[in-house]
Simulated assay, not measured.
Amino acid sequence: MKKIVLAIAFSFVCLMGINAQSQRVHEQIYNSSYKTASNPSEETGVRKLAAFKVDAITYLVSRTLAELSDSTAKHSAEDVRHLNNQLDSMAYYMYDYVNLFTKEYSKATTLKGQNRVMKIFRDASVNHPLYNDNDKELVLAYFNREDYLTQFSLDTDWVKALAEAKEKLSK
C-alpha cells in the first residue's frame, strides 16, 4: 500500500512539473528569441527572425492581458486557464510556423520557388485572424516589409495558418 501511495505521489509531482513547464511556453520562446534578437554577434537575418517572434509573442500577451483585464467580463478560473493555454499554444504554433517557413524558404532553389513559399505563408497568416484586430498598422507591421523575411500578420490564428500552409505546401 505504501508503494502505491508513493507511486501516486510521484506521478502527481511529475504531472505538476510538466504542467508548470507547459504554462510557460510563451515565456521560454520569448526569452530565447529575445536573447537571439539582441545578440549583435548573430547574423542580421537570424536576429530579424527572432525579432518577429518577440513581437508576435508580445502581441499575443498584450491581447491576452487585455482580455483578462476587461472589467465588463466575468472570467471564471476555467476562462483564465483557457486564455493562458491559448497563449501558450499560439506561441508554440507561431514558433513552429516561422521555423517551417524558414526551412521551406531555404529549400527553395529558385526565385519562383521562394516566391511561392512566401505567398503561401503570407496568405495563410492573413487569412486566419485570431482577434480580428482593427489596428491594421500594428497587425500588418511586418506584412509589407521587404526588409524582413517574416512578412506575416501578427493577428494570426497560428494553428489554422500552419495547417493551411502545410496543406498548400503538399500540393
Rank of each mutant, 00 (worst) to 15 (best):
K2M: 15
K2F: 14
K2E: 09
K2I: 14
L6K: 13
L6Q: 10
A7Y: 05
I8N: 03
A9R: 06
F10R: 10
G17T: 11
G17I: 12
S22F: 13
Q23I: 06
R24C: 08
V25R: 04
H26C: 05
E27H: 07
I29D: 01
S32L: 12
S32K: 14
T36W: 01
T36Y: 01
A37Y: 05
A37R: 03
S38V: 11
S38F: 12
S38M: 06
N39W: 02
S41R: 13
E43V: 15
T44R: 12
V46I: 14
V46K: 12
K48R: 11
A50V: 00
T58D: 15
Y59W: 01
L60E: 00
V61I: 12
V61T: 12
R63A: 04
E67R: 11
D70R: 03
S71N: 08
T72Q: 06
A73Q: 14
S76T: 07
A77I: 12
R81Q: 15
H82I: 06
L83P: 01
N84Y: 10
N84L: 06
Q86R: 06
Q86T: 10
L87Q: 00
D88Q: 03
A91I: 00
M94D: 15
Y97V: 02
V98G: 02
F101E: 02
T102P: 10
T102R: 15
Y105N: 08
S106H: 08
T109L: 10
K112D: 08
K112N: 10
Q114H: 05
Q114N: 12
V117N: 00
F121R: 01
R122P: 05
S125P: 03
H128G: 06
H128K: 07
Y131C: 07
D133K: 04
D135G: 05
Y142V: 04
Y142K: 03
R145W: 08
E146N: 08
E146M: 09
D147M: 05
L149D: 15
F152P: 01
L154P: 01
L154S: 02
L162F: 04
L162R: 06
E164M: 03
A165S: 03
K166S: 04
E167D: 13
E167Q: 14
E167H: 10
K168G: 01
L169H: 00
L169W: 01
S170Q: 11
S170Y: 09
K171T: 09
